[in-house]
Simulated assay, not measured.
Amino acid sequence: EQNKDWANDPKSFVSNGPFKLTEWKHKESLKMVKNENYFEKDRIKLAGIDWAMVEDENTAWQMYRSGQLDLSYPLPGDVVGQLKS
């Protein structure tokens, strides 16, 4: 309550979820690690998550195709049509 900007800094960001925020480069990326205080921590198999913030869906799709990303959403419209067929 004392820090109105708590959510803008990983040092003061509070979470009760399976991951805790360790790094936040605004409009670029997030890094999260497994939260050892999470009530079901033994069920969490990932050590962490690196989340790239990519604004352009075509760029994100190309990063996925080249192995730079494990997931890309949303997909460009023309790609959806190609994947359906």
Rank of each mutant, 00 (worst) to 15 (best):
N3E: 07
K4T: 13
D5Q: 08
W6R: 11
A7Y: 15
A7L: 11
A7S: 09
N8Q: 06
N8M: 12
N8K: 10
D9Y: 11
D9V: 02
D9G: 00
D9I: 01
P10H: 10
P10S: 12
P10V: 07
P10N: 09
P10F: 08
K11S: 10
S12A: 09
S12Q: 06
S12C: 07
F13Y: 15
V14Y: 12
V14R: 11
N16D: 15
N16G: 15
G17E: 15
P18H: 05
F19Q: 05
F19L: 13
L21W: 06
L21D: 02
L21Q: 05
T22I: 15
E23D: 15
E23S: 10
W24R: 03
W24C: 07
W24H: 09
W24T: 02
K25Q: 13
K25T: 14
K25G: 11
E28N: 11
E28A: 12
S29V: 00
L30E: 10
K31H: 04
M32A: 04
V33L: 03
V33R: 05
K34D: 00
N35T: 01
N37H: 09
N37V: 12
N37R: 10
N37P: 08
N37T: 12
Y38F: 14
Y38L: 05
F39H: 11
F39G: 07
E40D: 14
D42Q: 08
D42T: 05
R43L: 09
R43D: 06
L46V: 08
L46N: 02
L46M: 08
A47N: 08
G48M: 07
I49T: 03
I49P: 02
I49F: 05
I49N: 05
D50Q: 09
D50T: 08
D50A: 09
D50M: 05
W51P: 01
W51G: 00
W51C: 12
W51S: 05
A52R: 05
M53G: 02
V54Q: 01
E55L: 10
D56Q: 06
E57S: 12
E57K: 13
T59A: 06
T59K: 14
T59G: 01
Q62V: 05
Q62H: 10
M63V: 03
Y64H: 15
Y64M: 14
R65G: 01
S66W: 14
S66V: 03
S66C: 00
G67W: 13
L69E: 03
L69D: 07
D70G: 13
D70T: 06
D70V: 01
L71V: 15
L71Q: 11
S72P: 07
S72N: 09
Y73R: 06
L75R: 06
L75P: 02
L75V: 01
L75G: 02
L75D: 02
P76F: 06
P76W: 03
D78H: 14
V80R: 09
G81W: 07
G81P: 04
G81I: 03
Q82H: 07
Q82C: 06
Q82V: 12
Q82P: 06
L83Y: 14
L83A: 08
K84N: 09
K84D: 04
